[in-house]
Computed example of a mutant assay.
Amino acid sequence: MAVDPESLNMEMRDPNNLNEHVRALWEDLIGEPTGTHSMDGVWRCSYKVFNSCKTCCYKVMTVLCAVPASIYWGCCFAALSFDMIWCTTPAIKAYLMQFGACKMLWSSVVRTCCDPCCESMGRCLSDIKVTQTKE
């Protein structure tokens, strides 16, 4: 089901948490333990520089690469869908049909050749009784 681009949620862009593993917040990456603190000004400046650089770099990369990446991934998933719908699924169905016929033939051969021998051996061995004797 296609989503109308105008109805996209511009705030919550990962509603299914697909990329929670790539979250890179300052608090998740940098931490100074008690007794090892930089100067307050350095800490604040580092925080601002980190977030500014990360945001700027990400935006530049998305401007340059997001549309070509979307084209690439759209084509990849279209090709994968085509393959699954028109090639793989029909091929699997054909193999299953062939294997069904082979299964019927093989089970007839086994029932004809092996069942009599197995039944005879079973009847011969069914009267064996095992007892334990004390020494």
Rank of each mutant, 00 (worst) to 15 (best):
M1H: 09
A2W: 05
D4N: 15
D4I: 00
E6W: 05
M12P: 00
R13L: 14
R13I: 15
P15V: 13
N17K: 08
N17F: 06
V22D: 04
V22N: 07
A24D: 09
W26N: 05
E27T: 14
D28M: 04
I30W: 05
H37K: 14
H37D: 08
S38W: 12
S38Q: 08
G41F: 04
W43K: 14
R44P: 00
R44Q: 12
S46N: 11
V49P: 07
N51L: 01
S52T: 10
S52V: 01
S52Y: 08
K59D: 08
V60D: 00
M61W: 07
C65Q: 02
C65V: 02
V67H: 04
P68D: 02
W73L: 15
G74A: 12
C76P: 01
C76V: 15
L80M: 11
F82K: 10
D83W: 11
D83P: 02
M84S: 09
W86F: 10
W86V: 10
W86C: 12
T88Y: 06
A91P: 00
A91R: 13
A91N: 06
I92D: 04
I92S: 02
K93C: 00
K93F: 00
K93R: 13
A94Q: 12
Y95D: 14
Y95M: 13
M97Q: 12
F99T: 06
G100P: 03
G100A: 08
A101L: 13
C102P: 03
W106M: 15
V110T: 07
V110D: 10
T112C: 13
C117Y: 12
G122E: 06
R123T: 03
C124W: 15
C124M: 14
L125I: 00
S126P: 08
S126F: 03
I128D: 07
V130K: 09
V130Q: 06
T131C: 07
Q132I: 13
